[in-house]
Design a protein around this nucleic acid. Structure first.
Lengths: 85, 85, 85, 85
DNA sequence: CTGCCATTTTACCGGC
DNA sequence: GCCGGTAAAATGGCAG
């Protein structure tokens, strides 16, 4: 059944409103992040490098797992591991 | 003066940590938004159209006209508009 | 039957290699497309609008109407259409 | 100067046409890739795993560099590396 | 048919 | 103020 007739317009309005509210909150946080970068910059740190560091920290955590997983995947693809492994 | 000697390492760590914390919060909100869209979808609404509507609501009237006019110009140049349009 | 014993490893390697080769070609073409857009941009055209136009050309007439109608319905539900529209 | 007057319409047409042509080629390649996967599948290989393998092969190359780079980046952020490094 | 993943597109932000 | 690259969002496609 298509959402027309009954309360659909209010329904839609509610969803839209909730989303727009959340997007505002999200924007506030983005602004806070910007502020922190600005503060760091005025303390003498290089913003671009900080971005790199953060990005790499995010990646670093999962990298090791992935590397081990790569080996396992190869073996599996070639039928070199038993099922329960 | 370069930020070296003294408290720089801790300093940097603090900035990075604050930012990472904020980015987590931001991600939580993004997830919430996704949830709302999913809920709307399972209520029968079309997610893509909802995105369009939200975008339009955000856009100021003058911007809209500008955008529409530019698109029209391009379509005309490519023969994509009929006479009565 | 699992693909193991005999030539499976070479077999897999061949498939993977063929795919990776094709993906490279695909990437080259993507790059070419980017180049053309860049060229158009430096000739003074608006890239975003070009994307829109291309999308519209791809879309069949009936799909377009459908899409337009759906959007109109949502806007109406949200009070975003004036009477004369 | 805006691109209107003179040969702009033809100009635009040419750009659009070139792009559409390239997109067709790209689609052909995508189809070829799909074919290879289908062929592999009917030879008994698991498509999902193949995707994983390909993805990981792409990542494997750059992982090591990244890890070393992370350390370097930290040092740099703290002013612990000299300029020419 | 649904959910997931890849790609593409858009927006943002810092640098010049 | 513009350009470039970087990160997020959105769309589309594929497997299950």
């Amino acid at each position: 059944m298509t959402p027309y007739g009954g309360l659909s317009a209010e329904h839609l309005e509610q969803f839209i409103t909730r989303i727009e509210r959340l997007e505002e909150e999200k924007k506030d946080i983005s602004d806070s992040i910007k502020d922190v970068f600005a503060e760091a910059k005025s303390s003498g740190f290089d913003v671009k490098t900080m971005h790199e560091v953060i990005k790499l920290r995010k990646m670093a955590a999962s990298d090791l797992e992935e590397k081990e997983y790569l080996l396992y995947t190869y073996k599996k693809a070639l039928g070199m591991v038993s099922e329960e492994q």
